[in-house]
Computed example of a mutant assay.
Amino acid sequence: MTRERELLDRAIGVQPPLGLDFDAIEATGRRVARRRVRAASAVVVATVAVIILSGTTLLTRSKVPELTPGGAPVTVEPIARDSAYCYRTADISSTERDQHISVGLVDGDTAAASIEICATIWTSNRYLWSPGGPRSSPPPLVACILNSRAYNLDGGEGPGSVGVFPGDETVCSRLGMANADID
């Protein structure tokens, strides 16, 4: 019967059984499993990072004080330090052209330099804020922490930034904002 089986196998083209390298097959399986674990770990890490950043953003935005206009003055540090806004008048709801200008430094703490930056804008009269033309000194300026009531801030990222207004230290509380601790 063995001879008959051999003849039949040759006739229909059956190949002799192959020798399998089980060690190589298992090693390939382990490599594939490690790749899958690394990919799943990377997805988990990325998801956790997105959740943490989203939560931080929500918590940060909720720390912008919403004060009652005319209330007691409060001083807080700005949340956003890389940009600031210079205002022509002490009005956060004005829709006039060039009422506020977004400013920033390429490198450095814009919040800390905001009074100086806005003073330069006032003295140069670049936006025609000074009725008599360029002036030798700006009006008294005060730094406030902008809240969500401030009109038309770039990309909604303004709340928590510094807004510099002409006036004294009572301007911020009159507008319902905290004074900025920028020193």
Rank of each mutant, 00 (worst) to 15 (best):
M177T: 01
A143L: 07
E26A: 14
A150G: 04
S114M: 09
E6C: 13
A143M: 07
L153F: 09
L7Q: 15
R174H: 07
R88P: 01
A46Y: 00
P166E: 14
A24Y: 02
P69V: 14
P69S: 11
A39V: 08
G55T: 01
V142N: 06
V43S: 14
I182L: 04
Y151L: 08
G167T: 08
P16M: 08
S62I: 10
T123Q: 03
L59I: 15
I25E: 03
A119V: 07
T95I: 12
A72P: 10
T57W: 14
P65N: 07
T75L: 05
R88Y: 00
R61E: 13
T95N: 08
D82E: 11
S148M: 12
V74K: 15
A112R: 12
V171P: 00
P17V: 00
L8Q: 13
P131F: 02
D91H: 05
P65R: 06
R10K: 12
E157V: 15
C118K: 05
R135G: 14
S148R: 13
S62W: 11
L7C: 15
S173A: 12
Y127A: 05
D9L: 14
Y127R: 06
F165H: 00
D107L: 12
A46P: 00
Y85N: 00
R35L: 13
A178L: 00
G156C: 07
A39Y: 04
R61K: 14
D9R: 13
R61P: 06
I145W: 02
A72G: 11
S83P: 05
Y85K: 02
P166S: 05
Y151T: 08
E66W: 00
D154Q: 14
R30E: 12
R174Y: 05
A84I: 06
P16H: 13
P78H: 04
Y127H: 07
T110M: 01
G133M: 03
L53I: 04
A24G: 02
A111N: 04
V142I: 09
S94K: 03
D9Y: 10
D91Q: 03
T60K: 10
A150R: 12
T89P: 03
L59V: 15
A24M: 02
R149Y: 12
A24T: 00
S54D: 12
S54H: 13
E26L: 09
R135Q: 13
A143W: 10
C118F: 12
S93Y: 12
S173N: 06
A42C: 04
G163R: 04
D107T: 10
S136M: 11
S93M: 09
A80V: 15
P138Q: 00
D183N: 08
S136E: 14
H100N: 11
A39R: 14
